[in-house]
C-alpha cells in the first residue's frame, strides 16, 4: 500500500542491465548503458537518462566515460547536461520531493505547499538538506492536474495536498528512511 514503488524513471528496459550475469568481463552499469546506446542514432540523451536512472545523478566521471565511449566531444556532453533541467550533476538527497509547479497546481496553492516544505526542511527549491536526506525540487505538471496541488515523493504521488499535510509527509518519509537504513545496516553486518 505504502507506494514502495521504485522511482519510476524513464528507462523502461533498464532492468535488463541488472540481470546480466557476470561471466567474463564485468561491465559497469555505465559501460553497459554506453554499449546499449552507442550504435543507435540520436541516443546521447537516452544514454544519459539511463545512467541517471541507475545512479540518481550524473557523476562527472560518467560524463567523461560517455563522451569517450560514444565518441561525442566532452564539451557537447557537458552542454547537454547543463542545458536540460532533468539532469542532475550532483548527488541529490535520498528522498526526492517534487512539488508540481504547473499551472493547475500553482493556481490551487502549489506555492504554499512549496514554501511549507522549504520552511520545514530549511532548503530552497533545487537544494538538498545537509544530511543529504531530502532534496526539494519543482516539476512542471506530472499529468495529474485534476488532483492539484500535487507532490511526488520518490515516485509516490500525493494529490490535493494542503500545507498542513506537509509535516506528516516529511515524517512518513523520515520513518521509511530510518527503517530502510536499519535493514541495510543489518545486512551489511554493521
Amino acid at each position: 500500500m505504502l507506494g514502495q514503488e521504485k522511482k519510476s524513471g524513464c528507462c523502461y528496459d533498464s532492468q535488463n542491465l541488472e540481470k546480466t550475469p557476470s561471466k567474463k568481463k564485468v561491465f559497469s552499469k555505465t559501460e553497459l548503458a554506453i554499449k546499449k546506446w552507442k550504435k543507435k542514432r540520436g541516443s546521447l540523451i537516452m544514454a544519459l537518462h539511463e545512467i541517471q536512472d541507475l545512479k540518481g545523478f550524473l557523476p562527472w566521471e560518467d560524463a567523461v566515460e560517455v563522451a569517450e565511449g560514444m565518441n561525442v566531444p566532452l564539451a557537447r556532453v557537458y552542454e547537454v547536461l547543463t542545458f536540460y533541467n532533468y539532469f542532475k550533476l550532483e548527488a541529490p538527497g535520498d528522498i526526492i520531493i517534487s512539488v508540481c509547479y504547473g499551472t493547475a497546481c500553482y493556481l490551487k496553492g502549489g506555492k504554499d505547499v512549496l514554501d511549507e516544505f522549504s520552511e520545514k526542511l530549511g532548503i530552497a527549491d533545487g537544494e538538498s538538506t545537509e544530511d543529504k536526506m531530502f532534496h526539494l525540487q519543482t516539476v512542471r505538471c506530472v499529468g495529474c492536474c485534476g488532483l492539484a496541488p500535487v507532490v511526488v515523493i520518490n515516485g509516490k504521488t500525493y494529490g490535493k495536498v494542503r500545507p498542513s499535510d506537509v509535516r506528516g509527509m516529511i515524517e512518513e518519509w523520515q520513518e521509511k528512511h530510518a527503517a530502510k537504513n536499519s535493514v541495510d545496516g543489518a545486512s551489511d553486518g554493521e
Partner: peptide, 8 residues
C-alpha cells in the same frame, strides 16, 4: 523508435 525529452 522512442526518444525522451529532458525537461526543456
Amino acid at each position: 523508435e522512442v526518444r525522451l525529452g529532458a525537461g526543456a
